[in-house]
């Protein structure tokens, strides 16, 4: 079943046309990977889904409901969480306060919290520390933790492995695998190994257009296609 559907989405930022034609169906369950070169429009696609840019023309449909013109906050309340490229951590707030803000009514579900602490022990260690003092990897954990502190239907994650050490990347992969058992993840990633180990379905965006969609298994086999779509020189 299709959870999220993007139809001929075009997004302008100021006077620049960034997305020209993004059409994509994200099925419910598992990890859907969106690949693409630097500047291809991956981040813009996620921001357009989240209502942080408004695509026009084109539409975003979530569980059959048109959310194209909805306010970002209302989109979030439908059960869509966003882990942005810059992590969006509130540095002046503590780890605890960052997580509290991600709950609807300011209280934690004890089991979920314990689970998150097990996935990311550093968050328990630095629970009352100001978030600006966390390392890059710990900030990324906090950002992901905010997305899963309450049940969601869809999590949009933008390049979570950027600048992280291999051991932390492994922990992230483990976490995402677990999350994806109950929640659909739309993952933007440049680290192909990481993406391949997680993704079931995938698509490639280039210059604001979806240029390929299929299964990860197929794409991983096809070296020529990878070379064509992802290498530095087009």
């Amino acid at each position: 079943m299709t959870l999220l559907s993007l139809k001929s989405m075009q997004t302008n930022i100021g006077q620049y046309a960034v997305l020209h034609d993004v059409t994509l169906d994200v099925p419910e369950g598992g990890v859907f990977v969106l690949l693409g070169r630097n500047g291809a429009g991956k981040t813009t696609t996620l921001r357009s889904i989240m209502g942080l840019w408004e695509p026009s023309p084109g539409s975003v449909t979530f569980r059959g409901q048109d959310i194209t013109a909805m306010h970002t906050a209302d989109i979030a309340r439908l059960g869509i969480a966003f882990v942005p490229e810059n992590m969006g951590i509130f540095g002046g707030l503590t780890v605890e306060e960052n997580l509290i803000l991600a709950t609807k009514n300011g209280t934690f579900d004890k089991d979920r919290l314990a689970h998150i602490w097990r996935l990311f022990p550093a968050l328990e260690t630095f629970w009352t520390k100001a978030a600006w003092s966390l390392s890059g990897g710990q900030k990324q954990m906090l950002s992901v933790a905010r997305a899963i502190i309450e049940p969601r239907d869809l999590i949009l994650i933008d390049e979570p492995t950027k600048g992280l050490a291999p051991s932390i990347i492994d922990a992230m992969a483990e976490a995402f695998r677990e999350i994806s058992e109950t929640t659909t993840i739309l993952l933007v990633e440049q680290n192909f190994e990481f993406a391949r180990s997680l993704g079931r379905d995938m698509a490639v965006i280039d210059d604001g257009r979806i240029v390929h969609a299929g299964t990860m298994a197929e794409f991983a086999e096809n070296k020529e296609l990878q070379e064509n779509l992802l290498s530095l020189s087009a």
Binding site: L52, T72, A76, A81, G88, G91, L93, I100, K104
Partner: peptide
Amino acid sequence: TRIGLLIRAGVENREMVEALGFRI
């Protein structure tokens, strides 16, 4: 207070507060 928390977070990063579901 929770309102205060939202204000402090909003001063830092308005978009993220909205992406967490609050009408800044």
